[in-house]
C-alpha cells in the first residue's frame, strides 16, 4: 500500500548528487548524513536546494534556533539525575578526536591555568591553588552525542565557586576554555553556574589520570559529552561568541540535556 505521506510527484533526485561534496564536508556521519535525504532537503522551505551555501545557511539557522530554544527551556535550578558510588565505571571511557596513543600528558608541577576576559583577578592558578578551594563530588551520567554513555564520579571545584573567587562577571554570556590538546570549547554562563558543573580534579576518588584530562577538565551534567573539555589550560569570560572545536565543524553549540 502506498504511504499516505509519499508525495505524488517525487522531487528531482539529482539534487543529492549536486550537494554530495557539501554533505561530505559537514563531517557528520550517521543521522545528519542520513537526515540530508532528498525529502528533508526539499523541506527546507524558502531555500534554493541547488545552491550549497543556501542549504548550509538554512541548516545553520535551524541549529542556531535550536540553541536558543534550548537556552529558553534550561532551568538553572533543576538537577540532573545522580547515582550511587557503586555505579561508577572504573576506569571511565576514553574519548577524544584522536586515539589514546596520541595523548600528551600534562606536567602538573609546571601547569598553570590562565585567566582572561571579564575577570577581575587574572592571576594564573596552579594545581595546588585549585586543590585548596572547596571541592564538591557528583556521580552523573556522561552522555555522548555518538549514542553511548557511562556513569562517572567526579570531584572538583564548582565552576561557580571558581568564577566567584576570581571576580568574574557572572552576567557575561560565555565561559570559554582552551586546552592542551587544542580542543577549544565554551558554554553559556547559566550552565557554568549550575551546581553540577565542576572543574574536575578527581575521578572515583583518585587524581585524574592522564588520558582523562589531568590536571583539570570540565564536567557538567547539563551538557553533552563534547562540551566537557579535558586538559584545560585557560578560561576566558566573555560576551563574544567563542565557538568550539566541534561547533566549528557544524555541531550544535548549546548541546544541552
Amino acid at each position: 500500500m502506498k504511504s499516505p505521506f509519499r508525495p505524488n510527484d517525487a522531487p528531482d533526485a539529482s539534487v543529492l548528487d549536486v550537494h554530495r561534496p557539501l554533505i561530505r564536508s559537514l563531517e557528520r556521519r550517521g543521522l545528519l548524513r542520513g537526515g540530508l535525504t532528498l525529502g528533508s532537503l526539499v523541506m527546507l522551505t524558502g531555500c534554493d536546494v541547488k545552491r550549497p551555501e543556501a542549504v548550509e545557511a538554512a541548516l545553520l539557522a535551524i541549529s542556531n534556533l535550536n540553541d536558543k530554544v534550548q537556552a529558553l527551556l534550561f532551568d538553572p535550578n533543576k538537577l540532573a539525575p545522580t547515582y550511587p558510588d557503586s555505579m561508577i565505571l572504573r576506569p571511565p571511557k576514553f574519548n577524544a578526536y584522536y586515539d589514546v596513543t596520541d595523548v600528551k600528558p600534562v606536567n602538573g608541577a609546571t601547569w598553570k591555568l590562565e585567566l582572561s576576559g571579564l575577570v577581575q583577578d587574572k592571576r594564573p592558578w596552579t594545581l595546588t591553588d585549585l586543590q585548596a578551594l572547596p571541592q564538591s563530588s557528583i556521580v552523573i551520567k556522561h552522555i555522548c552525542v555518538e549514542g553511548w554513555s557511562y556513569i562517572g564520579g567526579w570531584t572538583g571545584v564548582p565552576l561557580r565557586t571558581f568564577l566567584e573567587r576570581t571576580g568574574a562577571d557572572l552576567r557575561a554570556k560565555y565561559v570559554a576554555f582552551k586546552t592542551a590538546d587544542n580542543y577549544p570549547s565554551s558554554i553559556d554562563m547559566a550552565a557554568a553556574l549550575h551546581p553540577q558543573t565542576l572543574l574536575a580534579l578527581q575521578y572515583g576518588g583518585q587524581q585524574l589520570a592522564d588520558p582523562f584530562g589531568f590536571p583539570i577538565r570540565l564536567r557538567t551534567a547539563v551538557k553533552l559529552g563534547y562540551k566537557n573539555p579535558k586538559w584545560i589550560t585557560a578560561i576566558e569570560v566573555t560576551n563574544t561568541y567563542p565557538g568550539g572545536f566541534w561547533e566549528s565543524k557544524g555541531f550544535p553549540w548549546f548541546a544541552g540535556m
Binding site: R29, G30, L31, L36, I62, L65, V69, N95, E146, F251
Partner: peptide, 18 residues
C-alpha cells in the same frame, strides 16, 4: 527542534582501536 536540526551522531574523525 532536535529532529529539525538533525544533530551529529559521531565525533571521531580518527579511528580508534588500531
Amino acid at each position: 527542534m532536535t529532529f529539525a536540526a538533525a544533530p551529529a551522531l559521531a565525533q571521531s574523525p580518527m579511528p580508534g582501536g588500531m
